[in-house]
């Protein structure tokens, strides 16, 4: 028997490639350390997830909703530090395509 796929209407979820590959799929996934909303959700000031509410990576490996971090950095209390480890915030260059295609 020969099985030919003529067309496949598949369903998939998109995920941010946070570099933390093989994250726990059953859980809610990682959440933004500032707003506690999952990365694939959106920050409190957005309505649409994904490209409209992107993530931002720090050199310290911490990841936040970009809007959340910018708001944080904008406050005097932040002293321009990462809210998780208090290291000076440095935005990392995204390692494009770093996620191995599994």
């Amino acid at each position: 028997m020969k099985v030919t796929v003529k067309q496949w209407h598949a369903v998939a979820q998109w995920r941010w490639d946070t570099g933390h590959s093989e994250q726990d799929d059953d859980g809610e996934g990682d959440v933004c350390g500032i707003c506690r909303v999952p990365y694939e959700g959106c920050c409190p000031s957005c309505k649409m997830p994904g490209d409209d509410c992107p993530l931002i990576w720090g050199e310290c490996t911490h990841v936040f909703h970009m809007h959340c971090l910018l708001k944080w950095i904008g406050t005097a209390a932040s002293k321009q530090q990462c809210p998780m480890d208090r290291k000076p915030w440095l935005t990392a260059e995204r390692k494009v395509g770093s996620a191995p295609v599994s």
Binding site: K2, T4, A10, W16
Partner: peptide, 24 residues
């Protein structure tokens, strides 16, 4: 992933439909 470098796909394999041709 080439098109959207910062995103990956996680398949939900049990959903959807497949159009097949079986040659017996």
């Amino acid at each position: 992933n080439v098109f959207k470098p910062d995103k990956t796909l996680k398949w939900l394999p049990h959903l959807g439909t497949v159009q097949l041709e079986l040659e017996l």
